[in-house]
């Protein structure tokens, strides 16, 4: 009995798998905040005839203020996008010996296609669940659609931000096309992030339910890691590189407090995402 009490009061230490560096976590935080701001200041314009659009616009301080926040968040997006791309270039350069599409890379490879087919077989009970390496195909899609989508939405956004500069060269109809692309790419991104890929696959799928804190804490319990990413684990054991990704995580009141804060922020963001999703779905079908 005494030892149990001591275990609760003493800081508890775990051996954990370090999945994300501080850089990754800061980048994610910037994406998280800027994306939410962009959606809430931009989507009302797409669904301008609805009551909720007026309500959201008034809540964020009106169209003019929303435009300012939208542009600030756009600059944050440019910043994180540049950092991500520099990181990708660095990783590709570092891994040049192993191959850019090697297991563990964020780049899509043949195994992803096999995994998609394998997952559908598993869904219908016709095979075992595929085993994954560091990144699953939906995580690669999530990341690549963000990096790629940002180029499209960024370029069209800048055309509309600086129409005078762009029309020195381009005909005026490019502004019209830019609006159509920007607005629909935004709907695509919001749908992917708020429902199908990010909210579900990061938090709501059975393996992570109800919340996956790894992007906030950086590491996850070794047992969970072995189960979630068996191929990476096996690969690292074989390569003898497991030590590179092992960290000792101490559970203290500070880590508990941080957990509570992240739970809170994720819950608020999740609710906002669900709210915006309901608004959009309602507008599309009404």
């Amino acid at each position: 009995m005494a030892s149990t009490t001591a275990a609760v009061t003493e800081p508890r230490t775990y051996l954990e798998y370090k999945r994300f560096s501080a850089f990754h976590r800061w980048m994610h935080f910037l994406v998280f905040v800027s994306f939410t701001v962009l959606v809430f200041t931009g989507m009302p314009l797409k669904y301008k005839e609805t009551h909720w659009a007026k309500w959201v616009m008034d809540a964020v301080g009106g169209v003019t203020a929303a435009g300012v926040y939208h542009r600030i968040a756009a600059l944050v997006t440019v910043f994180y996008w540049t950092c991500e791309v520099l990181l990708m270039v660095y990783v590709v350069f570092r891994n040049r010996g192993r191959g850019v599409f090697a297991p563990g890379s964020i780049m899509p490879n043949k195994k992803d296609w096999a995994d998609i087919k394998g997952m559908f077989r598993w869904f219908f009970g016709r095979g075992p669940k595929p085993q994954f390496d560091r990144f699953t195909y939906w995580e690669k899609f999530d990341f690549m659609s963000l990096v790629g989508g940002t180029v499209i939405i960024g370029l069209t956004g800048f055309i509309m931000w600086f129409p005078m500069t762009f029309t020195k060269v381009l005909p005026g109809v490019f502004i019209n096309v830019a609006l159509v692309i920007h607005s629909n790419e935004a709907l695509l991104a919001a749908g992917v992030i708020f429902i199908f890929v990010h909210l579900f696959s990061a938090h709501l799928r059975p393996e992570s339910w109800p919340i996956d804190k790894v992007i906030f804490t950086g590491s996850l319990p070794l047992e969970h890691y072995k189960e979630e990413r068996p191929l990476e684990y096996a690969r690292r054991v074989q390569e003898g590189t497991l030590g590179e990704v092992l960290v000792v995580r101490r559970i203290t009141w500070r880590t508990r407090l941080t957990d509570v804060i992240w739970y809170g922020i994720t819950a608020v963001a999740g609710l906002a995402a669900v709210l915006m999703t309901v608004f959009i779905v309602w507008s599309i079908f009404s």
């Binding site: 869904f123 009970g125 749908g191 199908f196 579900f200 799928r205 059975p206």
Partner: peptide
């Protein structure tokens, strides 16, 4: 561009919806 995006959105959302629904189904099952 409008037609292209509507097609793309319908395809991706349909695939995403089916994938998500089946994943949840298998998760409960």
């Amino acid at each position: 561009f409008y037609a292209f995006y509507i097609t793309l959105i319908v395809c991706i959302f349909t695939f995403g919806g089916v994938h998500t629904a089946l994943y949840i189904y298998r998760g409960f099952k």
